[in-house]
Amino acid sequence: MSRKARVIHGCEVAGLDVFVPVVRLLSGEEPSRQIAEFGRSVGIPLLALGVFLLVWAGVASQIETSIGRVPGPAAVWEQGKALVGDHYAERTKEAQFYERMEGLKEKYAEEGRPWKDRRYSGKPTFLDQVGTSLATVFAGFVIASVVAVPIGILCGLSPTFYAAMNPLIQIFKPVSPLAWLPIVMIMVSALYTAENPFFEKSFISSAVTVALCSLWPTLINTAVGVASVEKDHLNVARVLQLSRFSTVRKIVIPSALPFIFTGLRLSLGVGWMVLIAAEMLAQNPGLGKFVWDMFQNGSSQTLAQIMVAVFTIGIIGSLLDRMMITLQNAVSYDVRSS
């Protein structure tokens, strides 16, 4: 492969197809076509976004609510900057607090008085909530994958096991996170009783709720992928007399990997959506709680703050999806194997 072909292949695997025309353009390949291509893949979406912002600004200025006028794009952008600013202001305050504590600690030590460490008790900022949400969704996603992939493999391998699992899958798959959440919270309270818990209870219950709702796409896709391994490939295993375990490890799983990753991608998407709802209902820390708190505030900033959260949720969700597409491309062997 030439270097250009490698760069282009890299772009495609990374899901950055948008830059393929740029690479081609830089290498002097059919400039007019590449510019047109780039215009279509970048120019048109930007234009559409612009139209959306204009319509939003126009409509928003017409609507008066009980807590003031609906904010337009500019107000939301300002609010976004303010929220980030708050975060750094809070961090500075925290640093100053610990600095003061250090000073006090020395003073206490000189005077021979006993000293007890105190933690800064400022409220979590918007960015802190984003971090918490990301950590929670990944925890839930990991739990879901650890459960769903092995069960999916068993379902795909054994029609009997699948028949046993099928009613459970059919019943639990459509259950909303809001229905799981109370059960999970009570169960976590009952079962998770560590003295100095490393994870907060709220974190565990959010993660478990995410896992319960997001494991189904992975489970089902894994089962389908495993069940649809090509007969030719299994014949290879039979001719070689691979053991059952080797057949699964060397033939079945690699062949089902693209399916598994498609499932994982869907699961992460579901998990992210479920998480916001769960946080909101359970008052667990995270973006969902942020939205709820702002709603309860009812200040003139409320709408703008919630809209910032909406965009943040959307952008993070699509970035997570992008990330999974990249992983999916990296493991798929037939679609883009070159």
């Binding site: 490939h233 014949n235 290879v236 033939i251 690699p254 062949s255 062997y333 194997s337």
Partner: peptide, 12 residues
């Protein structure tokens, strides 16, 4: 040793 009509190689 069997050689099939389709090469039947493992694509990964």
């Amino acid at each position: 040793g069997v050689v099939f009509q389709a090469p039947c190689l493992l694509p990964w």
